[in-house]
Design a protein around this nucleic acid. Structure first.
Lengths: 345, 345
DNA sequence: TTGTAGGCGTTATCAA
DNA sequence: TTGATAACGCCTACAA
């Protein structure tokens, strides 16, 4: 057990009361800016509080208020700038509602996610945001009854704020199909079973053109650069390369392009690579990445609104989220065989 | 004032006590796994707690324990993967000490940083980590007396865990100098006045070769892509381009290389660009980025250790941090004029 | 092995 | 305009 305790004499409301020769309850009122306290008293108390370095004790306050004024965000991968956008949206919207935001990073590990959720529940957050949850839905179903949890990007749950996930993937797949690709690889990311909208769209797209589903063209990305490295290795070990790859996200795509280049495979000449998310780096690399823009910031905002109306007892209406947008850049082109017949940007 | 309250009947230790027909204090003991409670009782209580969906109230616990078991991390820019490494180091080390980690993102805005620090103080965190603080040192000096604050990368304070900041910049500058560069640009980042080790090393390096300090070769980066865009514009408006640029960090460098390319300026042919931090993307882009590796993960670990020994009342000894390493890749080369005389990698 | 009592810091509700 | 009081949920002596 940790028992670290800074050798500090914490100043409480009582200390201020003593110094000001008033009752603690008066200090409370003064500090809250209540008008039911003489101005002179209020000023004196504020000055004293500042002088003495008073810091409110949130624990005590939360205990009596039965609310912490906190919103927790469970981030699966801090390493991915994608989630920073979400966080910013959450923060901006939360500020409007006098809520403060706390973040916990799980590294995409299910057990850690559980821990983070638990921590926030113990903190009695007024709202808990879980984008791209790793835990199975069952886990959250049990919690939903008792806690203000809102998911982001989880079509299979009730309390969730979503963008059109399948639509986004269709954008990518159709783009690839239109370029003439027929044999397309797919990189799946970490997700609980049954929650893979990208995979769904991928398979549907293949079906739509009567192309076979080839399991060896399915790869797995766990968020780490190493895992991308592995994918490149698997790819280049294939008898025949697919002509295009739909990567799990931009981070994965960028690393993949690099890993392929190191193996002498050129993008998009030898193989097209499409990403997902449109992080800012995506436009900076060479070749610039074809991807789908995902309104993460807005999703962050909306999930706080959702949370808030939930707290007010209102039935939250499904928020308007801008649709995903296809961003065609340089990492995708026509496949080798049809290359000479098609203009590649 | 926000008053969102999920319509929840929160189960407390008392409820469990009632259900188990024991005293609340027994429940406490049972839940703590104390051996001073009959095993049968303990099991019954644990089962009950799980069934009833009991979630400990941290507020109450913190209040009585006078410690929250929390470590707060104030991140200046979640968008930069660099800080994710720090967070991971913190988390891993914190876990060893039974501490839980909470993160707050400030976007590099001083006022927001103040807010985040305040929030953590109110939460009565056992430790507060502030890497690359934006607030002036004075602000923290006042707090240090009362709160367990540890800085990361702030040479000018007492309670800080540092890498050799100046040394890292010297690595870059010497590399540039050795390549033959004499006219070098510098991108400064957001920092309180007086806390600019990179700038210090930059000027020293110039002095060492008797090169003049040219203010027009100093640019400012605020963390946003837009600001890098502006730098590129300023650069290309110059009568004569410097032959090299020492960018504030890798994010800045990567965006800068892109912005320059769009203006027809090639890296490293027309201008060399060096970064700082060695984020994973740095090796993925084209041209791969020359940079310094910065032991962020270790700094995270060490700052928690520092915090912990501080809490134990020990005088924390300055931790061993691996030195920064120069990573030479492709974004730097000999300057134009000397190009033909020098082998460029 | 279990129960009793008091208090952590703050606030809301009364009463003065 | 201010003071007294009880309560929030939990924990730690101490008593039984």
């Amino acid at each position: 057990m940790a028992k670290p305790s800074w050798q500090t004499r914490r100043v409480t409301i009582k200390d201020i009361a003593k110094a000001a020769a008033v009752d603690p309850s008066t200090v409370t009122r003064a500090l809250q800016g209540s008008d039911r306290v003489r101005e002179a008293t209020r000023n004196k108390i504020s000055a004293l509080a500042a002088d003495m370095g008073y810091v409110p004790n949130m624990a005590a306050r939360t205990l009596v208020n039965r609310s912490s004024g906190l919103v927790g965000v469970v981030i699966p991968d801090m390493t991915n700038p994608f989630f920073a956008d979400l966080a910013r949206g959450v923060e901006d919207e939360a500020a409007k509602h006098d809520l403060r935001v706390l973040i916990s990073d799980t590294g995409g590990v299910e057990a850690v996610e559980r821990g983070a959720v638990n921590l926030f529940l113990e903190l009695k957050v007024d709202g808990l945001l879980v984008p791209m949850a790793r835990c199975p839905q069952q886990y959250y179903d049990d919690l939903h009854a008792a806690a203000p949890i809102v998911h982001v990007n989880s079509d299979d749950t009730e309390h969730t704020v979503n963008c059109d996930t399948v639509g986004a993937s269709e954008l990518i797949m159709n783009h690839l199909l239109e370029l003439g690709h027929r044999r397309i690889g797919f990189v799946r990311g970490p997700a609980p079973p049954g929650r893979e909208p990208k995979m769904f769209a991928y398979r549907q797209a293949l079906e739509s053109i009567g192309a076979p589903y080839e399991p060896e063209l399915i790869f797995s990305f766990d968020g780490s650069f190493d895992s991308t490295e592995k994918i490149a290795a698997q790819l280049s070990a294939l008898d025949e390369l697919p002509t295009a790859i739909y990567a799990h996200n931009d981070v994965n795509a960028i690393a993949l392009i690099h890993a392929l280049r190191q193996r002498g495979i050129a993008v998009p000449d030898d193989i097209s690579v499409a990403g997902h998310d449109n992080i800012q780096m995506a436009g900076c690399i060479e070749p610039a990445l074809t991807t789908v823009a995902w309104p993460m910031y807005e999703l962050g905002q909306q999930s706080v609104r959702y949370l808030y109306s939930l707290g007010e007892g209102k039935k939250p209406q499904q928020a308007k989220i801008p649709p995903p947008r296809l961003i065609v850049r340089e990492s995708t082109g026509a496949p080798r065989s049809t290359r000479r017949n098609t203009a590649s940007s």
